[in-house]
Write a protein that binds this DNA or RNA. Sequence first.
DNA 1: GTGGTCTAGACCACC
DNA 2: GTGGTCTAGACCACA
Lengths: 127, 127, 127, 127
Amino acid sequence: MEFRETLPIYLQIAEYVCEKILSKEWKADFRIPSVRELAISLEVNPNTVMRTYEFLQQKEILFNQRGVGLFVSSDAYKNALAYLKDKFMDREMPIFFRTMNMLGLEIEDLDIFYKKYNRNSSSGSKQ
Amino acid sequence: MEFRETLPIYLQIAEYVCEKILSKEWKADFRIPSVRELAISLEVNPNTVMRTYEFLQQKEILFNQRGVGLFVSSDAYKNALAYLKDKFMDREMPIFFRTMNMLGLEIEDLDIFYKKYNRNSSSGSKQ
Amino acid sequence: MEFRETLPIYLQIAEYVCEKILSKEWKADFRIPSVRELAISLEVNPNTVMRTYEFLQQKEILFNQRGVGLFVSSDAYKNALAYLKDKFMDREMPIFFRTMNMLGLEIEDLDIFYKKYNRNSSSGSKQ
Amino acid sequence: MEFRETLPIYLQIAEYVCEKILSKEWKADFRIPSVRELAISLEVNPNTVMRTYEFLQQKEILFNQRGVGLFVSSDAYKNALAYLKDKFMDREMPIFFRTMNMLGLEIEDLDIFYKKYNRNSSSGSKQ
DNA sequence: GTGGTCTAGACCACC
DNA sequence: GTGGTCTAGACCACA
């Protein structure tokens, strides 16, 4: 997996997990890959994955069954959605709109960009 | 001035300066506030303003007349626009659309937020 | 059986066994349930029960008659009491009193909690 | 500083910080020791202190002023109290009372232990 | 096997 | 100087 420079890797992995959950690929009580497995497959340090998993437990998106592994919590969908939504509303949207204003762009101007974006990242969900 | 947590302060100050330039409040050859003046008025560390001014010189938005002060360059408008546009296209838009996809939002859904945003931050200075 | 998160499961099962012994429900030379039986009834991994039984043998609360099963030792009552007492004096009490100090609580303040606690867990087996 | 074996070091350091706050030694807006300073004085790895500070920020007991340092938040007292209280009620009290019951102890029996404890740890707060 | 804690040390952006 | 991220690797208790 490739990572953007703008966001810590462990949070990008958190988004990756949330994507799996929102796409229903990983449902409630699904046992997610172990720290070591995911670390190897994403080519990062196990500590980094650990940090992601810790973060998501705290958000009640994952839960731990001691000695067994980590599982998708029953409220995972709801909580993952809330997490991404908060992030979007509080952090991304204001910056985005602010720049749009300064550039003199209107909502209508986004259409063309949006379509272009979706073309370029059609692989998006799967890795 | 209050700062968002998501962006380095010196870049937020850079945006503040760009805004002045794009709004034609500060035109070519305008002598901008000294590091100290701006630092005091924005309540930040002078080093931080210094960094902003260095950054904008490097982008050829400001230029330094030694011993006199910093001035708005003749290409400032063009360069400020280019800077914001690059930032928008390369960084903000991809992240923004990516999250929109995950949340299942469409462009149309943004309308209401956009309007609300413009209401809340109509002046742009204090918040 | 449900387990608290703060204590290893195998130790919670050890407490469960000690309770049986201290309440005289299981007396000296009583043949206790097999690893498999108890594992099924408590819905845990047999390895976990195994570990409990090893632990209690080491404390001379249980003893093993090879090929037959595990039995309550003749000193079980005394040893179970000693085990719980040590645990209480060395580990639980210092932590407990330390927190009480930080919270500014006095012994008298515990009364109400103690009564409430006893109401909620009067039976002790299922919760 | 010496650490108990029963609790991760980073949480023991969190308690240490909470103690400072509850004892009013560190008040709101007090700048706490830097990660490196505290790591040296407690003889632990900076990462461990980092983890404590992260934990306490998330509990809104500390807040970060970028590039400057970490400070005691205005709600620190309230939040530190809540943190310790929750821990006490949910985790320590049930275990404590359960053992007391098994040992046949009553609240009244604690008095003598409590007095003895306070004698032995009179140095308690200061380190 | 699992998650979790800790150390050591590098590197970074930011103020 | 500050906090923060990441890697590498050791070690642990638990199931």
